[in-house]
Simulated scan of single mutants.
Amino acid sequence: MAARIDHLVTSGTFSLDGGTWDVDNNVWIVGDDHEAVVIDAAHDADAIRAALGDRALRAIVCTHAHNDHIDAAPALAAATGAPILLHPEDLPLWKQTHPDRLPDGELADGERIAVAGTELTVLHTPGHAPGAVCLYAPELGTVFTGDTLFAGGPGATGRSFSHFPTIIDSIRDQLLTLPAGTAVRTGHGDGTTIGAEAPQLAEWIARGH
Rank of each mutant, 00 (worst) to 15 (best):
M1K: 08
A2T: 13
R4I: 07
I5D: 11
H7N: 04
L8C: 10
S11I: 03
F14I: 12
L16M: 13
L16E: 12
D17E: 14
G19F: 11
T20E: 12
W21S: 10
W21I: 14
D22S: 13
D22W: 01
N26L: 02
N26D: 09
I29F: 02
H34S: 03
E35T: 04
A36C: 06
I39A: 01
A41W: 11
H43K: 09
I48H: 08
R49W: 07
A51C: 14
L52S: 08
R55F: 10
R55G: 03
R58P: 00
R58L: 07
A59I: 14
T63C: 01
H64G: 03
A65P: 04
A65W: 15
N67I: 10
D68S: 15
I70C: 06
A72L: 03
A72E: 04
P74H: 08
A75R: 14
L76C: 02
L76H: 11
A79E: 11
G81M: 10
G81C: 11
P83D: 09
I84C: 10
L85D: 00
L85N: 04
E89G: 08
E89V: 09
E89S: 14
L91V: 14
W94C: 00
Q96L: 15
H98A: 00
H98L: 06
P99S: 02
D100T: 06
L107F: 07
A108R: 11
E111R: 11
I113M: 07
I113V: 04
A114R: 14
L120K: 09
L120R: 06
V122A: 02
H124D: 01
T125P: 10
H128S: 15
A129W: 01
A132C: 09
V133W: 00
V133K: 05
C134L: 07
Y136P: 00
Y136E: 00
Y136T: 04
Y136W: 12
P138R: 03
E139Q: 05
T145L: 06
T145Y: 08
T145M: 04
G146T: 03
T148N: 05
G152F: 15
G152C: 15
G158R: 15
G158E: 15
R159E: 13
F161L: 14
F161E: 13
S162A: 15
S162H: 01
H163K: 09
F164Q: 11
F164C: 09
P165H: 09
P165Q: 05
P165C: 08
P165I: 13
D169S: 01
R172T: 06
D173Y: 03
D173V: 08
D173T: 04
Q174P: 01
Q174S: 04
T177G: 03
T182C: 05
A183L: 14
T186F: 12
G187L: 11
H188P: 02
H188T: 12
G189M: 05
D190A: 15
T192C: 08
T193W: 03
E197W: 12
A198D: 03
A198T: 14
A198L: 07
Q200G: 01
Q200D: 12
E203Y: 06
E203I: 09
W204T: 13
I205G: 00
I205V: 13
A206N: 05
G208K: 09
G208I: 05
H209M: 07
